[in-house]
Design a binder for these strands. Structure first.
Lengths: 129, 129
DNA sequence: ATTATCTTTGATCATATGTTCATATATAAT
DNA sequence: ATTATATATGAACATATGATCAAAGATAAT
């Protein structure tokens, strides 16, 4: 096999050889790609759903708004740990809080979050429908 | 404040005092909670969406099925790294593969995955609608 | 059969993550 | 003002995670 053939799938890109089979698909993907900052925020949002403890809290919040100590009792964690996680969930707009005196009531931020939870549950229960 | 008052929100549960404000909500949450095994799978599925590299790959797969080396070229990672991540995505039924000779074409597993991506993107772009 | 191409796998390592403990803040009650 | 309640924050530590490198399968071509 001569050198031309050997490198038929190697395309010079930014001074280094990168192998690819469908150049047009790679270019199209690059065109369509969302800005990196959005990608980071978006992946961080999913990551916040991607922990058993936080997910358990979120699933419970589908039915009722709950305060920190309730969530701690429910999850079996310390209130500190729950508070830490709620803060991260709040930073990504997955939950919101409402104050009533000393008590802070947490609930799902909006219907997007509910949908993400519903679809995720459906997916793991019926992977092929 | 006498001892009765001091412990009004402390309920003996499994031999240790746990503070909670809404016992009925905690009990209801426990009743409604999905099995732990499902919770683990579900959170792992979101976790797989929760990494910039994997998410970038998945977003690209919305438009086209792509092979490993294309995805490597697109992401700027080694083919090995891409393959590792694709395997994890496949384990959670987020992508599927189709063989054509030596080339393996990856695509989103089903419409659940597309929906999860659409809603996630909508959420970070319009946090309040 | 041998070689090339495309992809996968296992080990390794630096970084990221979740929990706990100690402490601080905020609101309410005495 | 002082004390109690409810929550938040920062530091620390053990574990989990993602990328790389080296090597191995798997399919196709010669």
């Amino acid at each position: 096999m001569d050198e031309k053939n050997q490198f038929q799938n190697r395309i010079n890109k930014d001074l280094c050889n990168v192998r690819m089979i469908h150049l047009e698909r790679v270019l199209y993907a690059k065109q369509q790609a969302i800005p990196f900052k959005e990608l980071e925020v978006m992946s961080m949002m999913y990551k916040m759903l991607g922990d058993p403890t936080r997910l358990k809290m979120l699933m419970a919040l589908r039915d009722n708004e709950m305060c920190v100590c309730d969530l701690a009792a429910f999850t079996g964690l310390t209130e500190s740990a729950v508070s830490h996680q709620l803060r991260r969930l709040r930073d990504l707009a997955l939950v919101k809080k409402r104050r009533a005196g000393q008590v802070l009531y947490y609930s799902l931020d909006d219907e997007h979050v509910e949908e993400l939870l519903e679809i995720g549950l459906a997916h793991i229960r019926d992977p092929y429908t």
